[in-house]
Amino acid sequence: MAAPSLEAPRSTPYRRSTSRRSNYEMYSWLFMRLSGAVLVVLVIGHLFVNLMVGDGISGLDFGFVAGKWASPFWQVWDLAMLWLAMIHGSNGVRTIINDYAQRDMTRIVLKTLVLVALVFTVVLGTLVIFTFEPCPVGPDGAFLEGVPSFCTS
């Protein structure tokens, strides 16, 4: 038949690995849109409160952050933002890896790196949000400089 000698090397990048029957990509697609919509609110709200309200950006210091994380409302807000942005962003990078990395091994290595970075950041961030000490004391037992006002009152 026509030019069979050329067929094999050419078709390699086009040959689909056996299709997997799962809804994984569908849920991933849906998640990108849903998390994106929630992120718009979370991120704009975050920027507004941190940079615009009150003293604006000049009011941003340790005390400000500590004050926010003393409130369960902001703990949940920041936790949601952390998780959603990290999963959304990592899933987006996964898509880009699928776009560009052709060899299976390259894909596996890159996606593993993304997953490690995701888990590390999410675990560390979650830990910080919940174990944060808003009123740290020095070795002398006194509050450190810059603690929020509610520590001393």
Binding site: R16, S19, R21, E25, M26
Partner: peptide, 12 residues
């Protein structure tokens, strides 16, 4: 639809 639900289907 099942064919296009593939990893390389419409969600791409």
């Amino acid at each position: 639809l099942e064919v296009l639900n593939d990893r390389e289907g419409v969600w791409r």
